[in-house]
Design a protein around this nucleic acid. Structure first.
Length: 211
DNA sequence: CTTCAGATTATCT
DNA sequence: GATAATCTGAAGT
């Protein structure tokens, strides 16, 4: 905790913009990859918290691991709203945030690099929300329009993207729908390593311990 | 109404 | 690596 990585600035700067419908209204895997390197901003009375997204997971149609798998319920209602909607849920006393892509599909924001002056650890979906001040109250807000929450395009290119199995699931373990910036120190455990997973290969089920 | 597993994390061996 | 914490949503009776 309290670490801040040095992120070679200035060299390949880009103009950033708030991401809108064309960004979110695409296949979920596309959005999950495109979100890497983008910036999440949450405004409150004290100012703006910012984090650079370094790890995501895709939850797609007909996905047994998705909260939307059995159709709309009171909890997952936001997953069936417009692209860019925040779906925030609570598990084991922590809140986790998703961005909706297409109907019933979303991208879980798994970890980020802290960009605000405030120290903190946004590595892990619960910690990311806590660092940014995101919570259940934000469920249903739309990041395309919200004054409080927004996603901003990459200021610089991310490095290589690595792919692997999603974390913490008991079902659909074989699907490679977790994406991260290779080597980024803020990627959550278990760490993905380049070359450790073949994108086109479905690994056999393991009895214990993932990755 | 009751049961139960869970898109996590802190802490221990 | 393994487990407890701690509680809610959703499915079952």
């Amino acid at each position: 905790m309290g670490r801040r990585s040095v992120t070679g600035e200035s060299s390949s700067r880009r103009r950033t913009r708030r991401l809108g419908r064309p960004f979110f209204d695409r296949p979920t895997v596309t959005v999950a990859r495109a979100l890497l390197g983008s910036e999440l901003r949450v405004r409150d009375a004290d100012g703006v918290r910012r984090a650079r997204i370094v790890e995501t997971e895709a939850y797609v149609a007909n996905d047994p691991a998705s909260h939307a798998y059995r159709g709309p319920t009171p909890r997952n209602r936001s997953m069936f709203e417009a692209p860019g909607t925040l779906y925030v849920y609570r598990i084991h006393q922590v809140d986790c945030a998703n961005l909706v892509t297409r109907r019933g599909e979303a991208v879980l924001l798994r970890s980020g690099e802290p960009l605000s002056p405030q120290e903190g650890n946004p590595s892990g979906p619960g910690r990311l929300c806590r660092y940014l001040g995101l919570g259940l109250a934000d469920d249903g807000a739309n990041a395309r329009r919200s004054r409080r929450v927004g996603v901003w395009s990459r200021a610089r290119r991310p490095g290589r993207i690595v792919v692997g199995p999603r974390v913490g699931l008991s079902r659909a373990r074989a699907r490679l729908l977790r994406f991260a910036i290779d080597g980024d120190p803020w990627v959550s455990a278990p760490r993905l390593r380049s070359g450790s997973v073949r994108r086109d290969l479905i690994p056999p089920r393991r009895r214990t311990s993932a990755v």
